[in-house]
Design a protein around this nucleic acid. Sequence first.
DNA 1: GTTGACCCTGGAGCGACTCCAGGGTTTCAA
DNA 2: TTGAAACCCTGGAGTCGCTCCAGGGTCAAC
Lengths: 135, 135
Amino acid sequence: MRIGELARACGVDVETVRYYEKQGLLPAAHRTPNGYRLFGPQHAERLAFIRHCRALDMPLAEIRHLIEVADHPDADCGDVNALIDTQLDKVRERIKAMQALEHQLVALRSRCDSQRAVEACGILNELMAVSRTVR
Amino acid sequence: MRIGELARACGVDVETVRYYEKQGLLPAAHRTPNGYRLFGPQHAERLAFIRHCRALDMPLAEIRHLIEVADHPDADCGDVNALIDTQLDKVRERIKAMQALEHQLVALRSRCDSQRAVEACGILNELMAVSRTVR
DNA sequence: GTTGACCCTGGAGCGACTCCAGGGTTTCAA
DNA sequence: TTGAAACCCTGGAGTCGCTCCAGGGTCAAC
Ligand SMILES: [Zn+2]
Ligand SMILES: [Zn+2]
Ligand SMILES: [Zn+2]
Ligand SMILES: [Zn+2]
């Protein structure tokens, strides 16, 4: 299959496929005489794998690592477990930070519910006041 | 105060201060005869304001906008309210996505609790199986 | 024969920094 | 007095994961 077909099948941009190939995440495609890339089903499988991992927000470096491990079925999978745990920690940390953020924004928003002159705006006043307390 | 002192006071990196100045978020500092930047308390206040907004995850473009509004006390603050609302929507959306992610990772992690051969690892098998179902 | 859909390469751009090379200056102590 | 540490400067490259672009080539249908 050509690059457009592969991209459509996996729901990615053509440019993204070329990018993954350049980054060595996708094995280099064969080429037709005119230079077009030709991919097989194993490319589609790997691309889907990459996208699945990306949907889990793994950085490409970790996906590369995972592929490496998966390609050596004789090794053990301790690394994989650790990788998922690390990922989970990161995600949970970010959720906490985001929730704190949400609270702050709600508090901020409650300080102004109407169109006032900027001087009287509770939001701007709050934002500025915090600035002043820093010293 | 010199750049290091300002940076320490606001808990930012020196490079970040220079970056904000270059981006026009911080007014250009005065210079000593030897070329060192000299900042006043109003710079510290603005820097703290920027950091506070950044802590609320606002992009620099929106902070620039906010500063612009704050500098014209005669204008009204409708824009400010809208900006906070937009920000809040974005944060809530991301929290939801992150929580979905967390669930997926937990499910994935539960598929392997020990060091097995890679071939038998439930995590890798799961990840691969999903790839195959995409076609 | 020409329109349109597809493909190629190499390189720039995004956001918000961060780091570096390669310099100059200030401050403090031995 | 000398020298090391800590500070400051500039301009530019690097980060991440794409995305877009210019400037071309290829291929099928009408
Ligand atoms: Zn091996
Ligand atoms: Zn208001
Ligand atoms: Zn005005
Ligand atoms: Zn396992």
